[in-house]
């Protein structure tokens, strides 16, 4: 091999080594940086976007939709992270998983700013108002109302946004305002259920049947599968609360008839069936998630509770 060829192959070998060394150390360094990232992320986690929505709209020119999509993904990640944190904390404390409408760890300043940014850049992005109507009231009810009102203003053809508004008011116990929101929505659609909901809101806003109807409609109208799942969970919760009420009445009837609590579900199975509950062949009534209820017998009396494995939200 000539001297020239040897020099060339040595140079190539050196370059390959430099490439491997450079790439290898960059991977190792990235891992080290990632280890330090959580602390940094915690600091940045609750930092609201510093660009005002109006300026962002000017800067993005005709590409507001794409930037809104970016902030939408950021919002989902932010809420998802907070939901996970809260779920971990509640599971450790022996409680049920956190739900979308009960995330207290969300920083309202960050979430409101993000949602304002998205809806200013793309006012027709209706899924965002739907999401805000569910997540935001737990931390800032007034901001949630203002956002959905703005959504209604920007989307006068989207009648179901009135339902989102009614939901926020209903959750706050302001049944008259909820009824008003339903009425405003009813004027925009031929569907009569909104008018019926308005009437029921006015007469018995706190009725569990109203809650059931509300969540059923939210489930039907939801664009996002996460919101659909949340509405389904809430429906299970409402149904389970009603079932537990019936079970307690059955147990009270048995205690007054026999003078003592039933020792097992099998002793109450016939009465539970007669009350219209779904009862397992072994005797226990079944909750909406398909898990048997647990009979709690103490010196003070008997009660019913959810099984640990049940996925019915515990409120």
């Amino acid at each position: 091999m000539s001297r020239l060829a040897t020099t060339a192959s040595r140079r190539s070998l050196g370059l390959v080594l430099a490439l491997v060394l450079g790439f290898g150390s960059s991977v190792a360094l990235a891992r080290t940086l990632d280890r330090g990232a959580p602390a940094l992320r915690v600091a940045l986690d609750d930092a609201a976007p510093y660009v005002s929505p109006q300026i962002a709209r000017r800067l993005t020119a005709g590409f507001g939709g794409l930037v809104a999509d970016w902030y939408w993904l950021t919002t989902l990640q932010y809420v998802g992270r907070k939901l996970e944190e809260q779920t971990q904390a509640e599971t450790a404390a022996g409680r049920t998983v956190a739900e979308l409408d009960r995330i207290k760890a969300v920083n309202p300043r960050v979430l409101v700013r993000l949602i304002e940014l998205i809806t200013t850049l793309d006012p027709r992005f209706t899924a965002v108002y739907e999401f805000a109507a569910i997540v935001l009231p737990a931390v800032d009810g007034a901001a949630a109302v203002a956002l959905v009102e703005r959504g209604i203003e920007s989307n006068p053809d989207q009648w179901y946004l009135h339902q989102q508004l009614a939901f926020i008011y209903w959750q706050r116990g302001d049944y008259l305002a909820a009824a008003d929101a339903f009425r405003r929505g009813a004027r925009m659609t031929t569907a009569t259920w909104m008018e019926h909901m308005a009437e029921r809101m006015e007469s018995r806003g706190d009725d569990p049947k109203v809650a059931q109807a509300m969540y059923a409609r939210m489930y039907e109208q939801a664009q996002d599968h996460q919101v659909k799942q949340w509405a389904l969970n809430r429906l299970m919760e409402v149904r389970s609360l009603r079932e537990r009420q019936v079970i307690r009445e059955v147990l009270a009837g048995l205690v007054s008839a026999t003078g003592q609590c039933p020792r097992s579900w099998s002793e109450a199975a016939a009465a539970l069936r007669a009350a219209g509950l779904t009862v397992d062949t072994q005797g226990p009534p079944i909750d909406p998630s398909g898990t048997p209820y647990v009979l709690v017998v103490t010196r003070r009396g008997c009660d019913v509770t959810l099984h640990r494995a049940s996925t019915v939200p515990r409120g």
Binding site: F63, G65, L66, A68, D69, W72, L73, L76, F125, A127, F131, Q223, D224, H225, Q226, V227
Partner: peptide, 17 residues
């Protein structure tokens, strides 16, 4: 998976941009 059922909107935004 990441856009909470808004994939069509994002794909149109992204594709046209």
């Amino acid at each position: 998976a990441a856009s909470a059922s808004q994939d069509a909107k994002i794909i149109v935004d992204f594709g046209l941009t």
